[in-house]
């Protein structure tokens, strides 16, 4: 009941947030440029051509009608046509989605798998060499520009040592398309060559993207574990002689993870922000690279579409985190 009420409450909040996000992208794309159509048509357009475009794109109508049309269009999945690719933006984004999701998923997987145990060890052995080393690593992770880290990785592993591919998502055509996720598809059709290639291409982008996320996870896990270790219930569990492996990996970890889970939204923010520049450096054909290409080509309808889709994705991730938090922390009241 408690969880159901929480889900309904958050769902109700989702709608106005999404509408608000649409209003913001609409405002940016329709109001800020002095004359969006002139911008659109290019420098050599005649006044007649501009007027024709104005009517065609509905810019002759009052602003609130334009907003309504925009909202109705977006609700129906119509994000407009890309000037550059001449295809519907929604289709473009959809075809790029699996690449970004594969990369993001790998980064989440890697940063959690490594970050949580490291955070626990840093807390257990606080002020040890390991703890100091991890502190330097996490402080660096939050201060390094991911596009620079990406270039450093390329320089070292791809150019100097030549043990990983420089960029791209795969050599050759890739596995037969089923889901669009190369790792999954090559497993499904047993295409081992593609699997190996897809995997080796994933290594550097994943590491780059995962580094700041991992730093955040280590930091929060460490703080959470330390808080728990100093609590009365751990003192009680110790006094009652429960084995320390049970105390740490069962009782302390669950408490610490509640704090870390609330940061997953933050981590996804880091990953989405990182994906834009990391995909640009590694020529990774995902949403981020699409956005960068759109920037290069002044394709700003496409950029608004990208903003809206990633924004909506981020909002939904936060919604899920909220609900997850409500489920794993019994103290959350409805």
């Amino acid at each position: 009941m408690r969880v159901l009420a929480l889900i309904i409450n958050r769902m109700l909040w989702l709608v106005p947030t999404l509408v608000g996000l649409m209003v913001i992208t609409f405002t940016i794309s329709h109001i800020i440029p002095a004359d969006p159509i002139a911008f659109f048509a290019g420098e050599n357009a005649t006044p007649e051509q501009i007027e024709a475009l104005r009517v065609r794109y509905g810019f002759d109508k009052p602003l609130y009608i334009q907003l309504m049309n925009y909202l109705i269009g977006v609700t129906n999945g119509d994000l407009g046509i890309s000037i550059y690719t001449q295809r519907p933006i929604s289709e473009d984004l959809l075809s790029r989605l699996p690449a970004t999701m594969e990369l993001t998923f790998m980064a989440v997987f890697f940063s959690t798998l490594v970050g949580i145990p490291l955070g626990v060890f840093a807390a257990i052995y606080r002020n040890s060499f390991l703890d100091h080393f991890l502190r330097i690593l996490t402080v660096s992770g939050l201060a390094i520009a991911s596009f620079w880290l990406a270039i450093l990785f390329q320089l070292l592993f791809a150019m100097e040592l030549q043990i990983t591919p420089l960029q791209g998502r795969i050599d050759g055509w890739g596995p037969e398309k089923i889901t669009g996720f190369f790792i999954l598809d090559s497993l499904l059709v047993a295409d081992w060559e593609s699997l190996q290639s897809a995997f080796s291409h994933l290594i550097l982008p994943t590491l780059t993207l995962a580094f700041p996320a991992m730093a955040t996870i280590v930091r929060f896990t460490r703080a959470g574990v330390l808080d728990a270790i100093n609590s009365n219930y751990v003192l009680y569990e110790q006094a009652m002689g429960l084995p320390s492996k049970v105390i740490i990996w069962k009782y302390v970890l669950r408490n610490a993870l509640i704090g870390t889970v609330t940061q997953i939204g933050l981590i996804f923010g880091i990953l989405i922000a990182g994906a834009v520049v990391v995909e640009a450096v590694f020529d990774w054909p995902g949403l981020g690279l699409y956005a960068v290409e759109a920037i290069m080509n002044s394709d700003y309808n496409a950029i608004m579409g990208f903003t809206l889709v990633t924004g909506a994705f981020f909002i939904i991730v936060n919604l899920i985190v909220d609900i997850l938090h409500g489920i794993i922390d019994p103290r959350t009241q409805d």
């Binding site: 009365n232 219930y233 003192l235 009680y236 569990e237 009652m240 009782y251 669950r254 408490n255 103290r331």
Partner: peptide, 16 residues
């Protein structure tokens, strides 16, 4: 040897 703590409020693990 077993133990009864001072504060039964905070001596239970809150999430189990």
């Amino acid at each position: 040897i077993t133990f009864v703590p001072q504060d039964p409020f905070s001596s239970f693990n809150p999430v189990f």
